Amino acid sequence: MGCNSSEKPADSTFSKDNIANKPSIDTLANDEILTTIATEVLIAVKAKDYKAFAAYFHPTDSVLFSPYGFIDVKTCRKLTKAAFLKLVEERNLVNWGSYDGSGEPIRLTTQQYLEKFVYNADYLNAEKKAFNQVIGKGNSLNNLAEIYPHHPFMEYHFTGFDEKYGGMDWTSLRLVFKQYQSNYYLVAIIHDQWTT
C-alpha cells in the first residue's frame, strides 16, 4: 500500500518531540484562509480543470500523491506542476503505488487516479470538514504528523455511504499546504479509506 516515484521523498526529517509539541504547525495559517484555498482546489478538481488545479501546486516543491492514509515516502509519486500537466496531456498509465490488500500496482492515467484517489466523493459537500485535525481513522497507520509536522492541512470526510457496510466505506481527502511568499500551496494530497 503505497505510491511510486523516482523523485525525492517528502520532507521526512522529524523528531518525536516535534510531533508531541503540535503547536509547531505553521501558526500563520488559519482555518478561514486554508478553507478558501482548499475549496478552490476542490472546485478545480471536481470540474476536471487540471490547469486550474495545478496552479495550486507549490512553486518550488513537488506535490506528493498518496492513495492511502499511510504515506510511504519511498514510493509515493511526487510531481511538479509541469510534470503533472505533462502526464495529464499524455494520458499514459502511471504507477501510483500499490493497492492495499492485493499489493497489485495502481496503474492508472492521471485522470483515472484523480477520480479514484482524489475526488472519489463529492468533497465540496463533505459530511465533515476539519482544519489541522484528522477525522478519518481506520485500521491502518496515519503518519501525516510525522511526514508533515509543520504543515497545515484540511480534511474532508464522509463517514460512509451504505448502511450495510457499517461505516467501513468511509473516505477522506487531506490537502496539505506549505507557505511560499505569503501564499499557501499544495505539497501533498492524501486519500484515505478503510483498508483491509
Rank of each mutant, 00 (worst) to 15 (best):
residue 96 W to L: 02
residue 92 N to E: 14
residue 85 L to K: 05
residue 96 W to R: 00
residue 101 G to R: 00
residue 88 V to C: 13
residue 92 N to S: 12
residue 85 L to T: 04
residue 86 K to G: 07
residue 97 G to K: 00
residue 84 F to V: 07
residue 82 A to L: 13
residue 104 E to T: 03
residue 103 G to V: 03
residue 105 P to W: 01
residue 110 T to C: 15
residue 112 Q to I: 14
residue 99 Y to C: 00
residue 91 R to H: 15
residue 86 K to T: 15
residue 82 A to K: 13
residue 107 R to A: 11
residue 104 E to K: 01
residue 97 G to Q: 01
residue 85 L to N: 10
residue 106 I to F: 03
residue 87 L to E: 15
residue 103 G to F: 09
residue 90 E to C: 06
residue 108 L to A: 12
residue 84 F to S: 02
residue 107 R to D: 14
residue 85 L to R: 05
residue 102 S to T: 12
residue 91 R to D: 15
residue 107 R to G: 07
residue 109 T to N: 12
residue 96 W to S: 01
residue 97 G to H: 01
residue 88 V to S: 08
residue 98 S to Y: 03
residue 100 D to S: 11
residue 102 S to W: 03
residue 101 G to Q: 05
residue 98 S to K: 02
residue 103 G to T: 04
residue 98 S to L: 06
residue 89 E to P: 03
residue 99 Y to S: 00
residue 98 S to R: 03
residue 108 L to K: 09
residue 93 L to P: 02
residue 111 Q to S: 15
residue 85 L to M: 11
residue 82 A to N: 14
residue 93 L to Y: 11
residue 108 L to W: 11
residue 82 A to T: 14
residue 104 E to S: 05
residue 85 L to I: 06
residue 106 I to L: 05
residue 108 L to E: 14
residue 108 L to Q: 15
residue 87 L to V: 06
residue 89 E to W: 07
residue 95 N to R: 03
residue 96 W to A: 01
residue 111 Q to D: 15
residue 86 K to W: 07
residue 82 A to C: 09
residue 109 T to L: 13
residue 94 V to L: 07
residue 93 L to S: 10
residue 102 S to G: 10
residue 101 G to E: 10
residue 99 Y to E: 01
residue 99 Y to I: 00
residue 104 E to V: 01
residue 92 N to R: 07
residue 92 N to P: 05
residue 102 S to I: 04
residue 91 R to L: 08
residue 84 F to C: 05
residue 111 Q to T: 15
residue 105 P to R: 02
residue 97 G to F: 01
residue 82 A to W: 08
residue 106 I to D: 01
residue 101 G to L: 04
